[in-house]
Amino acid sequence: MSFLDVTLYLLNGFKLTCLLFALTLVFALPLGLLISFCTMSRIKPLSILFKIIVWIVRGIPLMLQIFIIYYVPGFLNNNIFAKVDLYFLLNYQVQDMGRFIAVVIAFSINYACYFSEIYRGGIQSIPNGQYEACAVLGMTKGQTFSHVILPQVVKRIVPPMSNEIITLVKDTALARVILVTELIMKAERLMASALVWPLFYTGVFYLIFVGVLTLLFGFIEKKMSYYKV
């Protein structure tokens, strides 16, 4: 195989890596905010429940969580992901759909929990005076949050969020533990035909991806520097 052939072959896997990355963000960013509300809730049972969930999700290896999400329904003799696999294979000739969905779920929950703590830190760092100023101006709690608190939180959490999101790029490689053919899995397949260098070549893909993200976050930070606190 020529260099070009290998690149195209790996790009095929990289597509899935990017899709996994994007879907995880789409689900985890709002879910994280929701979880942060729950952990900060004044309703004690709710906040305790979600603190325990965050503790479990952050305390167990992500790899194990992928296994749990994918295999545990199977133990219950109702492997939903295998059924989805079969359904997509028969109807759309798409392989591994069920596995992919399982991985997206595992990643979304895992990252939502990490994000929730970043949101919490951001929300709690906003001085109480901002809430009071809104209150005396007759604003509702919803208006206060969406127009005054959240915009300020976003600025504060960009650096820690970018850190976490860059970690996500590389964590997508874990999807191969349940045979989702992402970038590294593709390279491993090439090893079967005695091509070792593509495995190391995958690093370039990740580097470029993270490079683009770094530029993007730099741009966002610059955009938000129109005010100082």
Binding site: G129, E132, K155
Partner: peptide
Amino acid sequence: HFGLVFQNFNLFPH
């Protein structure tokens, strides 16, 4: 009915 001006302003910085 009341307006309040705070000691440390509490303007919306953004």
